[in-house]
Amino acid sequence: MNIPDQYESVNRPPYTEPHIPQQRNTHDQSSANVESLLGNMASMLQDGIDRPRPELLHFSGIETEYVRFITNFNLNIDRRVHDTSTKLSYLVQYCEGDARELIMHCTMLPPDEGYKEACDLLRKTYGRPMLVARKYS
């Protein structure tokens, strides 16, 4: 049984080319973004390389040097390091003599508690501005 061609054309929609959406050239945009990001990173790395390394001071327990030490420590370690265990380790490392002996036991405490205790002990023992002022008068 042959079906006439007229019948087929009535029931079928006319043939049209399939619609293919035009693709934006996202590859060019992505490449530009990556290049920009890499350029920024390279610039930041170069700035870090060109900048002199900060001097990390040591503290031996001399009261007149405490403010300078703790200011330097806060700027270079405390503000940049987020882990209190690492901060405490640095604090012990950069203290010497009597100052180190004073805070050494703080490493046995939980990190948050130990770091706070070490800072408090140093401040109470060496951060006495009136004593420092009398030494210079």
Rank of each mutant, 00 (worst) to 15 (best):
N11A: 12
N11F: 10
E8F: 15
I62D: 14
S60N: 13
S60M: 04
R24M: 11
I49Q: 06
Y15W: 12
A32F: 09
D5K: 03
S30Y: 08
I62T: 12
S30F: 09
L37E: 12
E55I: 00
I20Q: 02
P18I: 07
L56S: 01
T16D: 01
P52C: 03
G61C: 08
N33S: 12
R51M: 12
S9A: 13
R51Q: 12
D28S: 14
L45F: 06
P54C: 05
T26D: 13
P21G: 07
T16W: 00
E55C: 00
M44R: 13
S9T: 10
R12I: 05
F59R: 03
L57H: 02
D47I: 01
Y7E: 15
N40H: 15
D28E: 15
V10N: 11
S60P: 01
G39L: 12
L57W: 01
M41K: 14
H19G: 03
M41A: 14
Q29T: 14
V34C: 07
T16M: 01
D28G: 05
Y15S: 05
R53A: 01
L56Q: 04
H58Y: 11
G48H: 07
Q6W: 06
Q22H: 02
L37K: 08
A42Q: 14
S43H: 14
T26L: 15
Q46W: 01
Y15V: 05
P21Q: 09
M44C: 06
P54V: 02
V10K: 11
N11I: 11
H19W: 06
P18N: 14
L57N: 04
L45Y: 04
S31Q: 14
P4K: 13
D47R: 02
E35T: 09
D47L: 03
G39F: 06
S31Y: 10
A42W: 03
G61L: 07
Q22K: 04
A42I: 04
V34D: 07
D5V: 01
N25A: 09
E17A: 03
P52Q: 07
P18A: 15
Q6F: 07
M44S: 08
D28K: 15
S43N: 11
D50E: 07
D28P: 01
N25V: 03
V34Y: 06
P18L: 15
I62G: 11
R24V: 09
P14H: 09
Y15N: 04
E35A: 15
H27W: 03
E35C: 09
P14Q: 14
V34M: 13
R53T: 00
Q29P: 02
L37H: 06
D28Y: 08
P52A: 08
D50W: 00
P4H: 09
N40T: 13
Q6C: 05
P52H: 04
I62M: 11
L37N: 06
P18Y: 06
G39N: 14
E8G: 08
Y7N: 10
D5G: 02
